[in-house]
Design a protein around this nucleic acid. Structure first.
Lengths: 236, 236
DNA sequence: AATGATCTTCGACATTTCACGAAGCGCAGA
DNA sequence: TCTGCGCTTCGTGAAATGTCGAAGATCATT
């Protein structure tokens, strides 16, 4: 299970609960969907069972975000302790199989972060641009699989996600094709990071294409795993 | 803008805010992304501007779901009053262009609803099964476009969404192909509704296929617009 | 520098949430 | 039928939210 997918599922559930007119009912719907009893949920949270009941019955009409977060966390943790079948099942519903092979990770920060801060963290070398823009999230895309398997529509979706986000391409050979792909789509990320390439080997065309769309480009030789781990760990 | 997409975007935003360690920061991120000033947001909510500031600065650490919901609503309402460019932009990011043509509407209820109640509302005729199951949402799929344009992966995604959901196929000619498609995918919705067909014209194979997977099938001659409107209006 | 517009900080106070535990309800199984 | 077990209801107190309005801080414009 990719962390990005887990997170997106959690957001979906939390969002549904939050937006519901009766958060308690929504809460109950998800708890029962996960086949978790009120008692074990309460146990896991360290509450008495009456608390769960109070929420679900609507005596507490508007639970705070902290409580909703804790409950969703517990739902996931309990399910994962049981093998994670529900989390997996519902994640499958949220994502096409393609996303699995193309998007390595994807995350939204809770506030805008300077590009420089992000690139510094994962030892990037600047190829062009000044790194003074801000991004609110990142997407790690497997370049090879993206080019091999995505339909034009799906391409747009990946890039579409990238407004105000850093787009990290893994295992690039020269960086040319990712930049060409960006050139021909309507959405432009403020920042592109080419992974798995030394800055001396970046194709000269990359800079030209990037300047055309005012995108700042970096390269990094850190491993994909390291990058994902470092970015995840950061409190943004 | 399809109501289902608007809703999903709202859920994504609300979920991100709710799960954030600092809901205030997330709130601010989205407000500024929508290019809405604290003042006009406060105006629209009928609050004083200090309230917004208190949330965003973190003085109120865990806003209730009611407040988060109101704020997300206002963000959307203000943007839509200005032409809806942000809602549209972010929705585009959330969905592939394909979804537009294939999924007419999609909604999650806040609790489980008996199939019978849903089918009664839109004047369905039962073709097989007893209608005693429960569903927690529905998906309205354009059958023709689904078959014409979807890749196998995307098919899975549509059907995948349908565990514990009613799957409504529009403009079916005999109902055979939708049922065949369901037969060959691993996920089985508890209930399938064939729209735009008289129950006498439903292909006999439909019942056989449905019984095989214990799916109850209905037909309805109501228009797609009416169906969507009725289902949306209902407080589930 | 002075003006305004906008955003932030803060004290105050009513309303809710949050969490407990005791008591009550409902149901599966002995 | 009775016994548990688990869920729900409810009174209670401490803590936090929800909201206001006044006063202070920022900052672009004049």
């Amino acid at each position: 299970m990719k962390p990005g997918q887990r997170q997106q599922l959690a957001e979906k559930i939390a969002g549904e609960i939050t937006l519901s007119d009766m958060p308690g009912k929504a809460l109950k719907k998800w708890r029962t969907s996960f086949q978790i009893s009120a008692g074990s949920l309460a146990d896991h949270l360290g509450f008495s069972p009456s608390v769960i009941s109070d929420y679900e019955s609507g005596r507490r009409k508007s639970p705070g975000t902290a409580v909703v977060g804790k409950i969703v966390d517990s739902l996931f943790a309990i399910d994962e302790a049981n093998g994670g079948s529900c989390v997996e099942k519902y994640s499958k519903m949220l994502f096409s199989n393609l996303d699995e092979d193309v998007i390595y990770d994807l995350h939204d920060f809770s506030n805008a972060v300077p590009v420089r801060e992000l690139t510094g963290l994962i030892n990037c070398h600047c190829i062009c641009g000044d790194g003074n823009q801000y991004v609110v999230g990142y997407t790690v895309v497997n370049s090879l699989n993206a080019i091999l398997t995505l339909s034009p529509n799906e391409f747009n979706r990946i890039y579409g996600w990238s407004t105000e986000r850093a787009l990290i391409f893994t295992d690039v050979s020269s960086g040319k094709s990712p930049m060409v792909a960006i050139r021909v789509t309507p959405f432009k990320p403020p920042c592109v990071i080419l992974q798995g390439i030394n800055h001396n080997h970046v194709h000269p065309l990359v800079q030209k294409l990037a300047e055309r769309d005012r995108i700042c480009v970096f390269s990094t030789e850190e491993s994909v795993e390291d990058i994902i781990e470092k970015l995840r760990k950061q409190e943004w």
